[in-house]
């Protein structure tokens, strides 16, 4: 069987979902038999070098760069997966949703208890910086997403089972214990 190509990225996330990918432990050796990684922090490939079968996205979109990366994933990946709470619902970063952006920036850079060093009282405005979005968006509110793997982070077994199911074309077993959340 030809190896499937995989790409991964972390947008407005904490890399916890990527840690959970690594948590498949020694099965990563089996995985390497099945897939080849393209653009991903796992192998540090920065740009897409070939068409990808499965794109895995951690984190939602909080700035313009997130949007551009996500769009490039949608463009280059046949299947796109939202991995974890932040990609699916916005997660912790989305706590700022509902608070005016001006208030967020003022708290973070001008008035918060830890901003003593910002003596020039400047809000980050360099053209090189990504632009903040009006709110944090889950991935599917920006591009079409094919599958969702929930969790914070999703369990390693769930990631493994889902990838194996996708690669082998078999149906993913979803017993009650996997889909219950309380």
């Amino acid at each position: 069987m030809e190896k499937k190509i995989i790409a991964t990225t972390s947008l407005a996330g904490c890399f916890g979902c990527h840690m959970s990918i690594l948590d498949i432990d020694e099965r990563i050796l089996d995985l390497i038999e099945l897939v080849e990684f393209n653009k991903s922090p796992v192998d540090d490939i920065k740009t897409f070098t070939k068409p990808v079968d499965i794109g895995i996205v951690e984190g939602g979109c909080c700035n313009s760069e997130n949007v551009e990366v996500l769009r490039s994933f949608r463009k280059n990946c046949k299947i796109l997966i939202s991995l974890g709470e932040c990609a699916i619902m916005g997660g912790l970063p989305a706590l700022r949703n509902g608070i005016p952006i001006e208030e967020c920036l003022r708290e973070a850079y001008l008035e918060g208890p830890t901003v003593g060093l910002n003596t020039t009282k400047i809000l980050p405005n360099d053209d090189e910086l990504p632009m903040l979005l009006d709110k944090v968006y889950p991935c599917h509110e920006v591009v079409k997403v094919d599958y969702y793997l929930p969790g914070c982070p999703p369990r390693a077994d769930l990631i493994w089972d889902a990838l194996v199911a996708l690669i082998t074309g078999n149906e993913l077993a979803l017993p009650y214990e996997v889909v219950k959340f309380d």
Partner: peptide
Amino acid sequence: DYDSGFDLESSVLESCKVVGRQPIFHHH
């Protein structure tokens, strides 16, 4: 058959205004 309705241009307007910069978009 799919459109998320998301608009990058309008969603960055507010933050750019707050920090005082012009929005720049790289169209690929």
